[in-house]
Simulated assay, not measured.
Amino acid sequence: MESKVPPRIFSARRRIAARRRMLALQQQPDAARYLIDDMIEDVLERLSFLRFEPATALVIGDYTGALARTLTAAGVAVTEAEPATGFEEEQPYPFEGFDLIASLGTLDTVNDLPGALVHIRKALKTGGMMIASFLSSGSLPIMREVMLAADGDRPAPRVHPTVDVRSGGQLLQRTLFADPVIDHRHVDVGFRSMERLVGDLRGQALTNVLADPGPALGKAALAQARETFAAAGEGGRTVERFEILTLSGWKR
């Protein structure tokens, strides 16, 4: 029986380009890092709460290097991997035998999420732990409304489909992780303009990488988008929400 090929929702080329642009923008002193900072803090809190002290770890997607530095200072042998520089999350890993694999902010734009989780599990030692965090269902509700208003009667694909808590739990069961834990939290950020939000999305590789991204907004549609964004706020500030889903489990 032939294996089922996952649908091509995201473009690998656009995904890599977005992350490469992010790496360049992160060289700026005021680059937005609030989502990766939240994910790193969460990983460290989980390890502390569980009193889990891995000897080896693979960190995927942490463009700040902060998690690797903290783990290294604690005596952990850390390997870092970045999709922008050739690491393939939807292929078997070129290394294995890790006590911990932390995947931060990348799995929301893979076409084969179950397959990516299987590759993580295979790269763990028996008794090893995975912690995977990424944007989930409910993220960017204002931007979704803005794009719908701007497109009018002919909405185009502009915002990514996302995974919810229930689906996350089903994924962990399907990929045979033991003692699965699914957590959901949000980060609210205020913006004084839609352009500032878009800048933060670019700086964190959160822009549209769909295989069929739709046409660019024209001048009238862009003006409508700005108006809708401003109307959604108060006092010249619009608060956007980022929902983070964290999946964790063990290889038994």
Score class of each variant (00 low, 15 high):
A223V: 10
T228Q: 11
E227H: 14
T207I: 15
A220V: 15
D212C: 06
A231P: 02
T207S: 07
R196V: 03
A220N: 11
K219E: 15
R192V: 12
V198K: 06
P215G: 09
P215H: 02
L217Y: 03
N208P: 07
T228W: 07
P213Y: 06
L197F: 00
L197P: 01
T207M: 14
L201C: 07
L206H: 00
L210W: 02
K219G: 08
E195N: 14
N208I: 07
R226C: 06
L206M: 11
T228D: 09
L201G: 10
G214D: 02
R196S: 12
T207W: 10
A221K: 00
Q224M: 12
T228H: 05
A225L: 00
L201I: 12
A230S: 15
V198Q: 08
D200C: 10
R196E: 15
N208Q: 01
L206V: 04
A225T: 08
M194V: 02
A216N: 09
G214I: 07
L201E: 03
R202M: 14
Q204C: 09
M194E: 01
K219R: 15
G214K: 03
M194Q: 11
L210Y: 01
A205N: 04
A211L: 12
A231T: 11
E227W: 11
P215W: 02
R202T: 01
A205Q: 07
R196M: 10
A225Q: 00
A223K: 14
L217S: 03
V209W: 01
E195T: 13
F229G: 00
L210R: 03
A205Y: 04
D200I: 12
T228A: 13
Q224P: 02
L206D: 01
Q204N: 15
Q204P: 05
Q224N: 15
R192Y: 09
R226H: 14
L222E: 13
R196W: 04
L197W: 03
